[in-house]
Nucleic acid binder design. Structure first.
Length: 102
DNA sequence: CCCTTGACACGGG
DNA sequence: ACCCGTGCCAAGG
């Protein structure tokens, strides 16, 4: 009963992440808005941090509102480059070109 | 129940 | 571009 919120959140967040097309990225805030929780961007991050526990999701396609990559996720850059995601600088995605448009 | 954490966001300087 | 303060809120201790 009391864990339903947690489970719903994880499900909603991961099902949005799953829909990000290859070659595009979404921001934490964008995902939060898409699930109707605009102010919960930090929560999106903490779910993705342990997303491996829930299965295989393209969590490398999620960056912050500046296009910066996630700390403690060294493989992220290579995974994005493999999909030809455009970078603006060494560790910053070009959001103008790469952000997922709904 | 209170306190701290945090893969965030946003506005200022 | 960088650093800082503030707001945010579920989760974990």
């Amino acid at each position: 009963m009391s864990t339903i919120l947690n489970e719903n959140l994880i499900y909603e967040i991961l099902s949005v992440v799953e829909e990000i097309p290859p070659g595009n990225v979404a921001t934490y805030g964008q995902i939060a808005r898409l699930i109707g929780r605009e102010k919960n961007a930090r929560l999106v991050g903490s779910v993705l941090k342990r997303s491996e526990y829930y299965g295989s999701y393209p969590c490398h396609r999620v960056v912050n509102h500046e296009g910066r990559l996630a700390p403690s996720f060294p493989e992220q850059k290579e995974l994005l480059l493999e999909e030809d995601v455009p970078f603006k600088s060494e560790n910053q995605v070009d959001l103008k070109k790469a952000q997922w448009e709904i």
